[in-house]
Computed example of a mutant assay.
Amino acid sequence: MSHRRLHLAAFRTFLVLAAVLVCPVQVVIAQEVSPDAPPYEQQLMRLSEIFGALHFLRPLCKENDVPSWRDQMEDFLDAETLDENRRRRFIERFNQGYRGFSVAYRDCTDAARLAMGQYLSEGETIITDVTSRYGR
């Protein structure tokens, strides 16, 4: 691998790590949670962001998920949101997750596969936690 390509790959990895580390903090500060929001609201917001990231990463790495992560997000929105403002906040987080990776990746890399695996695991943890603690 040439010095220039190695430098470019390192820079892309830095951008993704910066987006993953910085963006969630900014979003929590920027987005207010209403007082009547469920206690698991922040977990669902994070799940929306994970869905967006996976919607970008899985096809990039030639993973053919049926239903797609966008379709899963639509099902989630239909099940979880009656309030239009809340629905918009979830959509914003989905889009943020998508954009966070789309600006840094054009090809499936080892770093993209690692992020994808971590997001799948984190999403599963959130779903398990929320349904076991708050499920009906």
Rank of each mutant, 00 (worst) to 15 (best):
M1P: 06
R4E: 14
R5A: 13
H7L: 13
L8V: 09
A9N: 11
A9Q: 13
A10W: 07
A10L: 15
F11A: 11
F11K: 07
F11H: 10
R12P: 00
R12V: 04
R12W: 02
T13M: 08
L15Q: 13
V16L: 07
L17N: 12
A18P: 00
A19L: 09
A19R: 10
V22E: 03
C23G: 01
P24D: 09
V25P: 01
Q26D: 02
V27C: 03
I29V: 12
A30S: 12
E32K: 13
P35F: 07
A37C: 05
A37F: 09
A37N: 07
A37E: 13
A37L: 04
A37P: 03
Y40L: 03
Y40R: 01
Y40W: 14
E41K: 03
E41P: 00
Q42L: 10
Q42I: 08
R46A: 14
R46Y: 06
L47T: 04
S48N: 13
S48I: 05
E49Y: 02
A53D: 01
F56Q: 00
L57S: 01
R58F: 02
C61R: 06
E63H: 07
E63V: 12
N64Y: 08
N64E: 15
N64G: 01
D65I: 03
D65R: 10
V66C: 02
V66S: 09
P67Q: 08
S68I: 03
S68G: 06
R70S: 06
D71R: 08
D71Q: 11
Q72S: 10
M73T: 09
M73G: 03
M73I: 02
E74W: 05
E74I: 12
D75Q: 13
D78F: 07
L82Q: 15
D83K: 11
E84W: 09
E84I: 15
E84P: 14
N85H: 14
R87Y: 09
R88K: 15
R89A: 14
I91A: 12
R93W: 13
N95L: 15
Y98C: 01
R99N: 12
R99K: 10
F101W: 06
S102K: 08
S102D: 08
S102V: 06
A104Q: 02
D107E: 11
D107Q: 13
T109A: 02
D110S: 06
D110N: 07
A111Q: 04
A111L: 07
A112E: 02
A115D: 08
Y119K: 01
Y119N: 03
Y119C: 02
E122R: 06
E122C: 00
E124P: 00
E124G: 11
E124T: 09
E124D: 10
I126G: 06
I126L: 11
I127N: 05
V130L: 10
T131L: 12
T131K: 06
S132L: 09
S132E: 15
R133Q: 15
R133C: 05
Y134S: 05
R136S: 15
